[in-house]
Amino acid sequence: MNNILEAERITTAEIKELRQKAYGARARVLQMVYDGGSGHCGGSLSIIDILSVLYFREMKYRPDDTEWAGRDRFVLSKGHACPALYAVLAMSGVIEERELKGFRSAGSMLQGHPEFGTPGVEAVGGSLGQGFSTALGMALGARLSKGAQRIFTAVGDGEIQEGMVWETAMAAGHFGLDNFTCFLDRNKLQGDGKTEDLMMVEPLRDKWLAFNWEVREIDGHDISEIVAAIEWARTVKGRPQMIIANTVKGKGVSFMENVAAWHGTAPPTDDELVQALAELNAVSEGC
């Protein structure tokens, strides 16, 4: 693994800070779903370290000018994990922290799935497979306009059972879109159970290689590995990059980890919220 060498570009202090932020974002997810009365905790907690690295370190964007043409784009194709996106958008100053209280309620800018028009949300997400395709269109647009923007997206491991994902995969490989980086949130669970029981998605690496992508596998909760993978993606020429991120659904909250029932949409109870926030806080302090 040359992760270690590449990861030296990030200091221990930076890793610690990003981890703390990711755990702060996790606490916001729990509070948001509790306040909103429903939402998807499990998949938000599995993707949140990746979102933290993207929004707090890697992506070029202006929190006070979300329409700046030169910005990198991120599309959350697994849109049900939007509490994670809203949390990092709030923490980076794109939206106000107080908006999080309105999650899923009538009139709120924070809808149950990402809606275009919410500051920082680049495309609709949540009808599985569609965000991935919209992101591919953005990558084509960036290339056509000779822009330097990088297009990031995240798909779920259950999501890739959708047929259109493979239309998009084939097109990205065909067009050789090297400005297109996708994270596959491999938490191994989907709404009704294990991916491999419901519809086998393995072998993942071989599938994406066969569709003419460059593939890298990482621990999706290890900040230095996420950073290294993005640095690697930036060096790839002539091919899109798939970063298969091995993750834990519900990561960071003991009673949610690897439990399919926490895919969504029931909120934590009062006691569960207290316990979850305590656990997250303990990890954050120990970073």
Binding site: R73, V75, E122, A123, G129, Q130, F132, S133, T134, A135, L136, G137, M138, A139, L140, G141, A142, L144, S145, G147, G163, M164, E167, T168, M170, A171, H174
Partner: peptide, 19 residues
């Protein structure tokens, strides 16, 4: 290619770049 769903989705993304 023969892939209308991705064509439609990609059109959405392309439009965000001013095309």
């Amino acid at each position: 290619g023969i892939a209308e769903q991705n064509m439609m989705g990609a059109a959405a993304g392309l439009s965000t770049f001013g095309y």
